[in-house]
Amino acid sequence: MRKVPNNRAWWLVLPVFILVAFSALIPLMTVVNYSVQDIFGPNAAYFVGTDWFREVLRNESLQASLGRQVVFSAAVLLIEIPLGIGIALLMPTGGKRASLCLILLAIPLLIPWNVVGTIWQIFGRGDIGLFGRFLNEIGINYNYTADPVDAWFTVLLMDVWHWTPLVALLCYSGLRAIPQAFYQAAEIDRASRWAVFRYIQLPRLKSVLVIAVLLRFMDSFMIYTEPFVLTGGGPGSSTTFLSQTLTTMAVGQFDIGRAAAFSLVYFLIVLLVSWLFFTAITYPDRDK
């Protein structure tokens, strides 16, 4: 689209600017202020410079939490993206059955995150849950509240259950946008199923896949409610991810200065990775 240079367009953006400045800029500045002080109460704050940052960057339990977070987000992307593509390829291409599929797939996305945790908390239990009981009955010793491996498995399974439909729906809409002529040409060339996927479908899915990766990275990197309800971060701290560590520090222990410094480091990591993704999405369009 050809865009007209017009600085009066700022007036149209102003409401959004004010709203987001109110709910993002003021809090962000406040976090920066908190991060350089040791705060005991409204009138008892002491300037400590960059001590909190020094401590947060060297704190081993925070580093461990970051490590778990990176592994978790990587695992989520590696499982959900291929699985989502596969499901999108399996979906019916049109008609009533396609709409039914879409609605059923969308259900997990519309469940409040704490209820997602509750569903899996119940479903995975060895006594009253179908899944946990089933695994125990066939001879697998499974208990997500006691065994870290089982806990990780359950949290990952829950996330795959919860969010793969989003990837599938994105890919599905990407697939629908491919003109029929491409497939007809492939048929004339007697292209194999794999060749059709590799040279027609996958390249055309690129733009939606970048959105899917971006959304899944951002949301998995800030995951809090689901594992908090499911495992409470345990056993031990084996499924405690960054947001939970931060929330415990800020609200649980009211350790304001340290939590603020940690918040900023966390935010900078997300900002960098997201900027890379965002540039990757928008950069190819710039020349148009």
Partner: peptide, 15 residues
């Protein structure tokens, strides 16, 4: 704005 806990260095930073 007392709750924002402004300090001189952060004020300089944002300015």
């Amino acid at each position: 704005i007392a709750w924002m806990q402004w300090t001189l260095p952060t004020a300089i930073f944002f300015a």
